[in-house]
Computed example of a mutant assay.
Amino acid sequence: MSGATSAPRPEPQGGERSVGEIFSSITTELSTLVRQEIALAKTELRQDAKNAGRGAGLLAGAGVAGHLFLISLTALVVIALGDLIGYGWAALIVTVVWGVVAAVLAKSGQKAVKQVPPPLERTTVTLKEDAQWAKHPTS
């Protein structure tokens, strides 16, 4: 045979690998595992930030509605309804309407924020699984 192709290396008896091969395999698997965990963490953080942003937007809407509540209490009562039903009743109606709007927006925002899972929840679970595997890699 010519030197163009190399003969396959004979495996040690019993299918045992050398310490160098085992170390190389562990290093490669650990490197792959770390890259996968980092990718999972990035994906999870992006999703959590998106959900938190939506909840914050709803809470901001509640703040705007609350601000409009104060403005409406003064301006709308006097201008729009004061001459029709009396100033006291007009003030009460406008106050109740904006109070309901603010409460609905605040509750919706609060619900959205509560749906955001704890930081890196899935990554934490997989890291625990990886640690268990590292302790008992053959099981």
Rank of each mutant, 00 (worst) to 15 (best):
S6D: 14
A7I: 03
E16D: 09
V19S: 12
G20Y: 04
I26C: 08
S31V: 03
V34G: 07
V34C: 09
R35G: 10
A39M: 04
L40H: 06
K42L: 09
K42I: 10
E44M: 00
Q47S: 14
Q47M: 10
D48A: 11
A52Q: 06
R54K: 11
G55I: 00
L59P: 01
L59C: 08
V64M: 11
H67F: 11
L70P: 05
L70T: 13
L70F: 15
L70Q: 14
I71D: 13
S72H: 05
L73V: 03
L73M: 13
A75K: 08
V77T: 15
V77I: 05
V77F: 04
I79G: 14
A80W: 02
L81I: 09
D83A: 15
L84I: 12
I85Y: 06
I85H: 06
G88D: 11
G88H: 04
W89Q: 13
W89G: 10
I93Q: 01
G99M: 00
V100S: 09
A102M: 07
A103S: 15
V104E: 05
V104K: 01
K107H: 10
K111V: 13
Q115H: 14
P119C: 03
P119E: 12
E121C: 10
R122Y: 11
T123D: 09
D130I: 02
D130H: 14
D130G: 12
A134W: 04
A134H: 00
P137V: 01
T138W: 06
